[in-house]
Design a protein around this nucleic acid. Structure first.
Lengths: 237, 237
DNA sequence: GATTATTTTTAGGTATAACTAAATCTTTGT
DNA sequence: ACAAAGATTTAGTTATACCTAAAAATAATC
């Protein structure tokens, strides 16, 4: 374990592992506190990174040597404070870039992920600072994900629940679209199910949830209903 | 030699080699025509890329296999049409990014090079198109270097000469600052010797050239006087 | 034609990050 | 409690990309 806070620049793969450990450990709900994250299994990381479990073990070993994770064999991996910081930094880059592409360059909110995924590893702190400034230090990205501040604090979010967990007849506002699947994003964008959209839940069925968005009614498969996070509230603001 | 126009994505290093072959082969004066470029020596490439000549030979072999350069042993290397296209594409990315950092994000013209150097390899064609549009399809970057168009044509430049070649008493406009050395850029920026600045040449001395910029007079070392390209013209526009 | 400088070849090194196969550990079901 | 199933680790391999030093080959110059 290396304690010297030295910044041997991490590889792209290493940064991605740390980011995924944070995301998986948060169960999609980052609280901003390392203590609230769970240990992540080798398996789930392997799936997420599209790699064999053995490859994950290898990488975790390296990250553990760097003092960025604690890996208890057979029990999963957790970030250390240092690793958590790096992961938040990467997340900040990613989400700021998404914001910037959307607001400054006119990308659709469903298009920004792929470009941000590449760029997040290659921008300087100066660049980060400049776009954050230009954007007015936003708290959330175009998908509704919270953006860590320059000091790596996460902003508070209002209570919300998955669309699939909404009660019959309830109204609400989409506050977050929690998927990175490009096809899912395209579909949701086409239906107008973007952050800020107003929806009503009509009924839950075995195949999915029947909902109303504007004048249109859709039967949304459960897989998709689970990625939409809703803030409950009266009909159409 | 691979003729299939396939786009096996090139590595960062490969793109950098191609770019440097173009820059060195143009002697700092790109005409936009491959025929006007000279063969580049292994040595000069090695210096530019900060590696040993043997490494250059190795890389040239690989690039030749990809059909991007023609390497005549012991006689130097030239770009093929395909390699020339790639090099221009990289140059376009680099210079557009420099413009964008300067105009959209407020970077100083002397600061943009380093950031662009990293980003040029990691932006998509969509990103390139969007920033080109935002900028209004500029023809030159903040250093005065010509930007290849979307179709990879280089814009015509007005005739110009090095400050070191100017005649005694002549007036002119800085149109290009042809160095990537950060310290040189900083120094020139501090003296106000940026593209667009008006200068008069007072006299040439052994140590350099005495010049006047605004109210100030400087003795500019020859090494620096050679990177400043001047368009001759009457005193202060 | 010999000397010098440059270039290429050869052989080998480093680093990253992936993989497979086999061994080992943990969990689960009976 | 134990066996089977599943997950994880170990060990050894592969592939890529890049680099180097030293020896051999070539070109240029006197």
């Amino acid at each position: 374990m290396n304690n010297w806070t030295t910044r041997t620049p991490l590889s792209e793969a290493q940064e991605d592992y740390l980011k995924q450990i944070l995301l998986l450990g948060s169960g999609g709900n980052e609280t901003g506190r390392l203590e609230d994250t769970l240990a992540v299994s080798t398996q789930s990381l392997a799936e997420q990174m599209q790699v064999r479990p053995a490859s994950v073990t290898g990488m975790l070993k390296k990250l553990a040597e760097l003092g960025l994770v604690v890996h208890e064999a057979y029990r999963g991996v957790r970030l250390t404070e240092a690793g958590y910081k790096v992961a938040l930094e990467v997340l900040r880059h990613h989400r700021l870039i998404e914001c910037y592409l959307h607001q400054a360059l006119g990308y659709g909110w469903e298009e920004v992920h792929a470009e941000a995924e590449k760029l997040e590893h290659h921008i300087s702190e100066a660049f980060e600072a400049r776009i954050a400034e230009w954007l007015g230090h936003p708290s959330h990205d175009p998908h509704g994900d919270a953006i860590p501040s320059a000091t790596l604090e996460l902003p508070q979010s209002n209570p919300s629940c998955r669309l699939s967990g909404l009660e019959r007849g309830a109204f609400g506002l989409v506050v977050r679209v929690a998927t990175q699947d490009q096809d899912a994003l395209n579909l949701l964008a086409h239906l107008g199910l973007r952050p800020g959209a107003s929806v009503q839940l009509l009924e839950h069925l075995r195949e999915g949830s029947r909902i109303q968005v504007g004048q249109e009614r859709y039967l949304l498969p459960t897989a998709l209903a689970q990625v939409l996070w809703i803030e409950e509230g009266g009909p159409r603001g």
